[in-house]
Amino acid sequence: MRITRVLAATALAVLGMAVIATAQTTTYDVGGTVSVHGGSKKKPKPGGLTFSFTVSDPSGNQTPPVQTYSIMYEGGRLNTDLIPGCSAAKINALATPDTDVCPAGSKIGSGSLTALIGSAGQPVSTASSCKGSLALFNGGKGHATLFVSSELATCPVALRQAIDMKYVTKGDFAGLEFTVPEMLRHQVMLDITVTHADARLSTIVKKNKKGEKVGYIESTGCKDANRDMTVTFTDEQGASFPATKTLGKC
Score class of each variant (00 low, 15 high):
K223S: 15
Q122V: 10
R185I: 03
L184K: 01
T195E: 10
V148D: 02
A104Q: 05
Q187Y: 12
C250Q: 07
G215M: 04
C250A: 07
A21C: 14
T230L: 01
T50C: 06
D29A: 13
E236S: 14
G238H: 04
N61Y: 05
M189K: 15
T234L: 00
I3G: 13
D235G: 07
A13W: 10
A11Y: 08
L82E: 02
V55R: 09
V188G: 10
V101D: 07
T27Q: 08
S119H: 14
T25P: 02
T33P: 01
P65S: 08
C130A: 13
S149V: 05
A18S: 14
S52L: 09
T179G: 02
P58F: 09
A23M: 11
K131D: 12
I91C: 05
L146W: 01
L201R: 08
A120N: 08
T80R: 00
D198C: 06
T244G: 03
K107I: 01
L159H: 11
M189C: 14
F178R: 02
V188T: 12
A9Q: 15
V19I: 15
V194K: 07
E177K: 08
K170T: 11
S56Q: 09
S240I: 03
S87I: 00
S219A: 06
A89L: 03
T203I: 08
L15S: 13
S106Y: 03
V188R: 15
E236K: 11
G105M: 04
D224I: 11
T220G: 09
T169P: 05
M183P: 11
P64H: 04
S133D: 15
D235M: 06
V6Y: 13
T96M: 13
L12R: 15
